[in-house]
C-alpha cells in the first residue's frame, strides 16, 4: 500500500470511530474539529423552507377530487369492458369483441393513471390535462349516440365528458390560485 492509501484508510478509520488510540493526532483533531452540529434554528429554517416548497407542489382539493373522479370513471369503464363485454355489446347492438374490449381496457387504465397524477403533484397536472381531458371529452361526445339506446353507457360517457372539462377548468383555477 502506498502512503496515500495508508493515510486514506487511517482517515476512514478515524471518521468511522475505529481509529487507534495512538493514531495520528492531526487526523483526530481535524475530524473532531470538523464534526460540529448545525445550529437548531438553521435546521428549522431550512426545514420550513422545504415544507413550504412541498406544499406549493400539492394540488388544490378541487383539482385532486376531479382528477381522482375521472380516474375512477376510466377504471370502472375498463373493468366493465372486461367483465361485462357481452352485456355492453347486447345493449348497444354490436357484436362482442373481447380482444378489442380487453386492449381498450388496458388503454383506459393507462389514461386513469395519467388523470390521477394531477392529484399527486401540481407539477404533473398539465400532463394529466393534456392526456386525460381530450380522451374524456371525446368519449363524452361519442356517448351521445348511446342516449335512448343504452342508459348506463350514456351516463358513463356523459360523466367522462363533464369530468374531462372539469379537469381542465380545475387545473386552470389551481394554477391561478397557486400564483397568488
Amino acid at each position: 500500500m502506498s502512503d496515500d492509501e495508508l493515510l486514506d484508510a487511517e482517515i476512514a478509520a478515524v471518521l468511522g470511530g475505529t481509529g487507534r488510540p495512538d493514531g495520528d493526532p492531526t487526523l483526530t483533531w481535524l475530524a473532531a474539529s470538523a464534526r460540529t452540529t448545525p445550529p437548531p434554528d438553521l435546521v428549522a429554517r431550512i426545514g420550513a423552507g422545504v415544507r413550504r416548497r412541498a406544499q406549493r407542489d400539492r394540488p388544490g382539493r378541487l383539482l385532486s377530487v376531479v382528477a381522482l373522479a375521472l380516474a375512477a370513471v376510466f377504471v370502472s369503464q375498463a373493468i366493465g369492458n372486461v367483465v361485462a363485454g357481452d352485456w355492453i355489446a347486447e345493449n348497444i347492438g354490436e357484436p362482442n369483441g373481447p380482444h378489442a374490449y380487453f386492449e381498450g381496457a388496458l388503454a383506459l387504465m393507462a389514461a386513469a393513471a395519467c388523470a390521477a397524477a394531477a392529484a399527486v403533484r401540481r407539477s404533473w397536472a398539465p400532463v394529466s390535462v393534456l392526456s386525460a381531458s381530450p380522451l374524456a371529452v371525446s368519449l363524452g361526445l361519442h356517448g351521445v349516440g348511446e342516449f335512448g339506446v343504452f342508459a348506463a353507457g350514456a351516463v358513463l360517457h356523459t360523466t367522462e365528458g363533464v369530468l374531462g372539462i372539469l379537469l381542465a377548468w380545475a387545473w386552470w383555477r389551481d394554477r391561478r390560485r397557486s400564483r397568488t
Binding site: 452540529t37 448545525p38 422545504v50 415544507r51 416548497r53
Partner: peptide, 28 residues
C-alpha cells in the same frame, strides 16, 4: 425527484453540507 423526497434528502444531508460549508467560510 419530487419535493416529498427532498425532505428526506434534506434531513440526511443537512449536517454534512453544514460541516463542509463551515470549513470553507470564515464565520458560523
Amino acid at each position: 425527484p419530487g419535493t416529498g423526497g427532498f425532505a428526506e434528502v434534506y434531513a440526511e444531508h443537512v449536517t454534512p453540507v453544514w460541516r463542509y460549508v463551515r470549513l470553507r467560510v470564515p464565520a458560523d
